[in-house]
Amino acid sequence: MWDTFIINPMINALLFLYRLLGGNFGLAIIVFTILIRLITYPLTASSTSSMKKMQELQGSKEWKDLGKKYAKDKEKMQAEQMKLLQSSGANPLGGCLPMLIQLPIMIGLYQSILNVIPSTPLQLFSFSQRIYAFFPVSLIPLSKTFLWMNLAQPEHLTIPGLPFPIPVLTILVLITSWVSQRVIPIMTTDAQSAQTNLIMNVFMVLLFANISLSLASGLSIYFVTTNLLTIVQYMMMGRVNWRQVYSLRPAPDSSK
């Protein structure tokens, strides 16, 4: 079911774009990522709107008063906060759910890219079973070259005179992952949350850099594109917090 409704349509959409864009798979990944972001934009917008509503509520005097009032009784505090959420009409899952719906799409895209650039006979066989009839088989194998990269292999750029290759794409993934996470405005009310948030930011950046370093560079193209789109999206909303990008300190409470 996952394959039939998510992976296979995505693979064939990628193939359609590949054909449309003159056999450039790197461009196909970029355009496909943009299209996916456009299609899921209503979900993202809904999520962002819900986040904003939650942030406003959690920055309110009432919310903070509850924190002070029930500082020694966490259970009671949570119960009262839930009541406040319900009375104000804010849904704490309103931000999460749309994002969670997007997650399978992202994982599907990731798996689709891996499938379309098979590097072993068994992967190629799996790919053969997923192609719709409209795709001209004579286009196989797909061109894996994009700029200086082989999209089926981890990317390293060899520069004449340098004794070691440079993982350019991994560096780009590292930078864009960090920036895309840190530009998001975060209002923390306690130091522990801020610290945890920072640790998660660092963990995520290292995680994606490691994936980029060891897996097919086609995935790194996807990571960089989706990170850049996140940054652009928040810039368009006018909600970026550039100060956080340069700081390794836990994010300050920007609501104060």
Partner: peptide, 8 residues
């Protein structure tokens, strides 16, 4: 990544 980032 914003899913995992926004503590609020």
């Amino acid at each position: 990544l914003e899913l995992f980032s926004n503590k609020k």
